[in-house]
Design a protein around this nucleic acid. Structure first.
Length: 445
RNA sequence: UCCGUAGUAGCUCAAUUGGCAGAGCGGGCGGCUGUUAACCGCUAGGUUCUUGGUUCAAGUCCAAGCUACGGAGCCA
């Protein structure tokens, strides 16, 4: 048997006899000539069966191959600009063909399908070009972010998935039976990150987080992945620089490594090429003023109502979109009212009604992709906030300890992977950014 | 949870005023030596989401429910 190669490397094997192993993505026949578009996970290549070059039995197998049948194909690589595929431009002249399994009638045809049908067949849908491209870009974004953090001296320190209490107070938790006691699926690793920085300086955690919210929008998942860096001796201003560089690096890596995939999903490169530091920084106060101005200028009464806001309210989705629309790159919104943010965010000196917090809003209506802040490092203040929020102190004793033993100013943020992938890929819904989305009404497959 | 839209063949959809259940794709069979979601011929394929009601007659009208999609709220 000749050398088994991956289709992505096909150009390096021109003129050689090779073996490909994969699945029939598409087949089209022209009588004595059969074109098999083969997928192997790394790419796609056209394999051509010509009746005169194969024995009769083998040609009949080629002629009868159904979509997604598993095959091993041997043949010679030749350049042909008519050959489709990824990378394309090369094809295999089939010399031998082995059928591993003849696929049953495949439900997903090359024509259009509805969302419900595709989500019900997610385990098969992943094989289609568009999903293949998106999930490869996802992997690149995650790797780029982790590489950047690792290179900057951050240490990956994993945080637990099962927690004794809420990370933050507002959102809904998934409760578990922990040998007769209550436990919860993690909403964030942040509190543990704060402990970890006192051991390691700069850390990040990366893992799934869970929110039992009855949200049903293009931006929400029940189970989503979050990358959360935390840094000792860090100010809000330094935090924004880290966020900015991290995002710019991830976009840059996607642009250099995943051009083929961006082309498959039809993402505009110009929009991504504009993502350069620095990002604009506006305060919550300015953002409210901007929205009030936009709202009053608005002719459409429905839109005017959607944009209308009073100081102290959190932004809704149309408001985030309207704010971000003034910029061609992400925009930082800083100093939110303390009342609408988490209990651990540091109040601003001389103006405690706002806190040293920052959200990063992605362009093109993708909304908040990062939330971060300076954390309270004063014990008494943190104790007061925990009590004011009605949180049980017992569960936070260890967290309060961090303010007793060498407490230092520190800051951190969380970046939502799926929203970031949706934005970079230009997708209309986060459900395509994760292999198996968990949504309000979906946990299958 | 609220507002809106939809549910008909495996899939995407059509069906006039309430009057015989249709097409394309996909499947099967046959044809074709350069196809790119090929093309040509033949063919199989239906609990019209569910339950109840109105009617000589319901895919179509009425009521309730279920499911999905879009939006809002909440959030990353």
């Amino acid at each position: 048997m000749s050398t088994v190669i991956q289709i992505k490397d096909i150009a390096e094997h021109e003129g050689q006899e090779v073996t490909l192993r994969g699945w029939v993505h598409r087949r089209t026949g022209k009588g004595r000539l059969q074109f098999i578009l083969l997928r192997d996970g790394s790419g796609q290549a056209q394999c051509v069966a010509f009746k005169r070059e194969l024995d009769a039995a083998q040609f009949e197998i080629a002629r009868g191959l159904s979509q997604e049948s598993a095959v091993v194909i041997q043949g010679e690589v030749r350049a042909d600009e008519r050959a489709p595929g990824f990378p394309g431009g090369y094809e295999i002249g089939i010399k031998r063909l082995e059928l591993l399994q003849q696929a049953a009638e495949y439900p997903i045809s090359p024509k259009e399908h509805g969302t419900e049908f595709l989500m019900n067949h997610r385990h098969l849908w992943l094989r289609s070009n568009r999903q293949w491209a998106i999930l490869r870009i996802r992997a690149t974004i995650i790797k780029a972010m982790r590489d950047w953090l690792d290179d900057q001296g951050f240490l990956l320190v994993d945080t637990p998935i099962i927690s004794p209490a809420a990370g933050e107070e507002t959102t809904t938790l998934f409760e578990l039976d922990y040998f007769g006691e209550s436990a919860y699926l993690a909403q964030t690793g942040q509190l543990y990150n704060e402990a970890n920085i006192m051991a390691f300086g700069k850390v990040y955690c990366f893992g799934p987080t869970f929110r039992a919210e009855k949200s049903k929008t293009r931006r929400h998942l029940i189970e989503f992945w979050m990358l959360e860096p935390e840094i000792a001796f860090c100010s809000l201003e330094e935090l924004m620089q880290i966020e900015e560089q991290l995002v710019v690096y991830a976009v840059e890596q996607v642009l250099t490594q995943r051009q083929q995939e961006l082309a498959i999903i039809g993402r505009s490169l110009e929009k991504l090429e504009a993502i350069q530091a620095p990002f604009a920084r506006i305060t919550y106060d300015e953002a409210v003023a901007r929205l009030q101005a936009l709202s009053s200028e608005c002719d459409d009464p429905a839109l005017r109502a959607e944009l209308s806001i009073e100081w102290g309210e959190d932004f809704g989705s149309p408001q985030e979109t309207a704010l971000a629309d003034s910029f061609d790159r992400p925009v930082f919104v800083t100093h939110y009212p303390s009342a609408i943010k988490a209990f651990y965010m540091t109040p601003l000196e001389g103006r405690p009604e706002v806190c040293r917090s920052v959200d990063l809003l992605a362009p093109e209506g993708y909304g908040e992709i990062i939330g971060g802040s300076e954390r309270i490092h004063d014990l008494a203040l943190l104790e007061r906030n925990i009590e004011a929020m009605g949180l049980g102190r017992e569960a936070y004793e260890w967290y309060l300890d961090l303010r007793k033993f060498g407490s230092v100013p520190h800051a951190g943020f969380g970046i939502g992977i799926e929203r970031t992938v949706a934005w970079i890929c230009g997708l209309s819904h986060v459900r395509e950014t994760i292999p198996y989305a968990r949504l309000l009404n979906r946990k299958y497959p």
